[in-house]
């Protein structure tokens, strides 16, 4: 089971990396093209801001998901570094992961409500004419993965408490 989840997580990380590379390219290239066309050829390229922002939203949230996965969110950690015992640290980790799971669950709820309302009052991205949910979907990515990785961290803490290693 753990092996399977770990493999799944590895595949997911590759997908995220790919997403980040492609969106970074689009965010940059759209603006470079816009300026080059405007300054060099007196051409107004429409839709470049919109394309850049759409890609940026995916970049932001894919990046946030990577930070969640790798445990690299900014933290005020003087309590955690003050805890020396293995058991105390595991309990602390369990509590933090549990609170994170609850808060991330609320994040999911808010995102879900945003989509539900968007179904009732659909919007389009100006100029591109694409549905707005394409730009909002990355928020769901960040929210759902925050819950899943919080559960992972809870499981790790429980395993540590039970005296075993990091698990998968």
């Amino acid at each position: 089971m753990i092996t399977f989840l770990a493999a799944l997580d590895g595949v997911f990380a590759r997908v995220l990396n790919l997403l980040v590379l492609v969106t970074s390219l689009v965010v940059t290239a759209a603006l470079v093209l816009l300026v080059t066309a405007r300054a060099g050829f007196d051409l107004p390229l429409t839709g470049m801001h919109e394309a850049s922002m759409l890609a940026a939203m995916w970049l932001y949230m894919a990046g946030a998901t990577l930070a969640t996965r790798n445990g690299r969110h900014l933290t005020v950690d003087f309590l955690a570094t003050g805890l020396t015992g293995r058991r105390a640290r595991a309990i602390h980790g369990l509590i933090i992961a549990a609170i994170t799971a609850v808060v991330a669950g609320l994040f999911c709820f808010w995102v879900w409500k945003m989509f539900a309302w968007g179904l009732k009052r659909p919007q389009t991205i100006p100029v591109l004419g694409l549905p707005l949910w394409l730009a909002q979907a990355p928020l769901a990515l960040a929210a759902v993965t925050a819950v899943l990785y919080a559960l992972r961290d809870m499981a790790r803490a429980v395993l540590a408490l039970a005296g075993r290693g990091e698990g998968g």
Binding site: D42, P44, H49, E50, V127
Partner: peptide, 18 residues
């Protein structure tokens, strides 16, 4: 960046920019 602002000003002869 809202239609028909760009189209209108372009038709008036100006180079437009976002």
């Amino acid at each position: 960046p809202v239609s028909p602002f760009t189209e209108t000003v372009a038709a008036m002869g100006y180079q437009t920019a976002t």
